[in-house]
């Protein structure tokens, strides 16, 4: 590992992508993720890669489609309003089974909203967003180091499953500086992609990248294939983190930067003698339903904390399945909950 650097989340993500072998990046500027295109506009030329500022988020995601279909490791990034524009492309990419990484440094909504951090794109990211039956793998880092680690993982998962992977951060994570280390070696050997459109030299069947299937029987077959793939991802790729949950009576559930805030609140609660713990989903899809549900055996109740008006709490309720009360505390519009606010909610439940 290299020496520890102090980097913003956005810039660390860009460097991690380069280290993961990503050589094409297409994006459109939007706050609070513009450090990422700015960083890659300097970095990509150094490694012989392509940085291209697209005319829109719509164009950027379709450039990703083309480059991914041509076999490249490719990424785009944006923040909430721009991610809405990418939904069409994401549906096509998922349908055509193209690997790529899409970053959402989310900000307050709906509409133009604000430029301050938010988690109000949770449902869009995990339950669809675009049309059709498809899933994104959604990774939610909570520190700048985890941004690096999960970005590298995202490229590997995308290639392994031929599926788009979203890195779900927020404005705070993108702007925050923390120490990071990067793996020394830049990955060079990428997995073979015999399906890519690289020019037909008659040594394989002609490759066609498409999400179109006009025959209902065949489209249903394709959907069954996708669902089987998603089932495999659910079996093999669920990730989460637990903190002091062993004897916890109040289990706080939070992801991303909010989990950091909640962790401080849990520490403060413990100092007051309250048995609090933290459950932090790292994959938002697939969601760690079983691991969270198991905590219902011992916990008295659950407190979901989000930077939105209540989105992930629906998954927490599914996981707990009515066995214990599930409470919600949220701030929205770009407001960030404080450890003191979360502690006050924990104290109400203790």
């Amino acid at each position: 590992m290299s020496e520890k650097l102090l980097m913003k989340g956005n810039e660390a993500l860009g460097e991690a992508a380069v280290r993961a072998g990503c050589r094409l990046y297409f994006a459109y500027p939007i706050t609070p993720q513009s450090e990422l295109p700015e960083y890659l506009s300097r970095r990509m030329p150094e490694v012989g890669g392509v940085f291209l500022q697209a005319e829109s988020e719509v164009a950027a995601i379709n450039m990703v489609y083309g480059a991914s279909g041509a076999g490249a490791r490719v990424m785009t990034s944006s923040s909430s309003p721009g991610i809405s524009l990418k939904q069409e492309g994401l549906s096509y990419i998922a349908g055509a089974e193209l690997p790529c990484v899409v970053v959402n440094m989310a900000r307050g909504g709906p509409g133009l909203g604000s430029i301050q951090p938010s988690q109000s794109d949770y449902l869009q990211a995990t339950k669809g967003g675009g049309h059709g039956d498809y899933r994104l793998i959604v990774l939610a880092p909570a520190s700048v180091q985890e941004v690096v680690d999960l970005t590298i993982l995202a490229f590997d998962l995308a290639d392994k499953y031929r599926n788009p992977v979203m890195i779900m951060g927020d404005g705070l994570l993108g702007q925050m500086m923390e120490p990071v280390t990067f793996p020394d070696e830049v990955k060079k050997e990428l997995p073979p992609k015999p399906w890519a459109t690289t020019g037909w030299t008659k040594d394989r069947p002609k490759n066609i990248i498409t999400s179109l299937e006009l025959q209902p029987e065949r489209l249903e077959e394709h959907n069954r294939h996708l669902q089987a793939k998603y089932a495999q991802i659910v079996r093999e790729e669920i990730r989460w983190d637990e903190y002091l949950t062993g004897d916890a009576e109040v289990v706080v559930v939070a992801y991303g930067t909010v989990a950091r805030i909640a962790r401080s609140a849990v520490d403060a609660a413990r100092e007051k003698g309250i048995k609090a713990g933290l459950f932090r989903p790292i994959t938002l899809w697939p969601y760690p339903y079983d691991a969270l549900g198991r905590l219902a055996d011992a916990a008295k109740n659950f407190l979901t904390v989000e930077m939105n008006c209540g989105q992930m709490v629906e998954d927490v309720r599914l996981a707990v399945d009515g066995r214990r009360p599930v409470y919600f505390y949220g701030r929205s519009g770009g407001m960030v909950p404080t450890p003191e606010e979360v502690l006050a909610e924990i104290e109400k439940l203790a």
């Binding site: 094409l24 297409f26 291209l52 697209a54 719509v58 164009a59 950027a60 379709n62 450039m63 990703v64 489609y65 083309g66 480059a67 991914s68 279909g69 041509a70 490719v74 069409e88 492309g89 096509y92 055509a96 459109t197 690289t198 020019g199 037909w200 002609k206 490759n207 066609i208 990248i209 498409t210 999400s211 179109l212």
Partner: peptide
């Protein structure tokens, strides 16, 4: 020849990516 099917209107962006 190898081919990609683009979303409506996006062929020049897809071609750019390729």
């Amino acid at each position: 020849v190898d081919f990609q099917e683009a979303a409506h209107g996006r062929a020049p962006a897809v071609a750019t990516g390729i």
